[in-house]
Amino acid sequence: TFVEFNGKKVEYPTPEAAEKAAKKLAKKLNLKVTKKNGNYKLE
């Protein structure tokens, strides 16, 4: 499962880990999380 932000793509071993990381990053970077095709994107 990938988390995409600032043009970077980071892969996580589980969807749970990706979701957790996405939410944490979104909060830190003041972005919102969108889920697309099972992957997460911060914008």
Rank of each mutant, 00 (worst) to 15 (best):
K24R: 14
K8S: 09
P13V: 06
Y40F: 13
A18N: 00
N6K: 08
G38F: 03
A21H: 05
K36M: 14
Y40I: 12
P13S: 11
K41R: 10
P15K: 10
K41P: 02
T14W: 03
Y40V: 05
T34M: 09
E4F: 09
K9V: 12
N39Y: 11
E16N: 08
A18Q: 01
K23Y: 15
E11R: 15
E19D: 07
V33P: 01
K23S: 09
T14L: 02
K28P: 01
K27D: 11
K8Q: 12
P15C: 10
G38C: 07
V33I: 15
K36S: 14
L42Y: 03
V10R: 13
A26E: 03
L31Y: 05
F5R: 02
N30E: 07
K35I: 15
L42E: 03
K35P: 04
K41Y: 15
A22S: 04
K35E: 10
E43K: 05
K36I: 15
N30T: 05
A21K: 02
L25M: 10
V10L: 12
E19W: 14
L31M: 12
K32Q: 09
G7I: 00
F2G: 03
E11C: 15
K9W: 12
E19G: 07
K28C: 14
E19P: 00
K9C: 15
L25W: 09
T14V: 02
K35S: 08
T14Y: 06
A22C: 07
L42Q: 01
P13K: 10
Y40E: 03
N39R: 06
A17Q: 10
T1H: 13
K23H: 14
Y12G: 00
Y12V: 00
K8W: 15
L42P: 03
L25G: 01
Y12W: 05
K27T: 08
A21S: 06
A22R: 01
E4P: 00
K20C: 14
K28W: 13
T14M: 03
E19Q: 09
K35Y: 14
V10A: 06
E11Y: 15
K41T: 15
P13I: 05
V10I: 13
A26S: 07
T14R: 04
K20V: 11
E43N: 06
G7L: 02
K23Q: 12
G38D: 06
E19F: 14
P13Q: 08
K24A: 14
Y12E: 00
F5Q: 02
A22I: 07
L29R: 04
K35D: 05
A17T: 08
V33M: 10
P13M: 08
K41I: 15
A18H: 00
A17G: 07
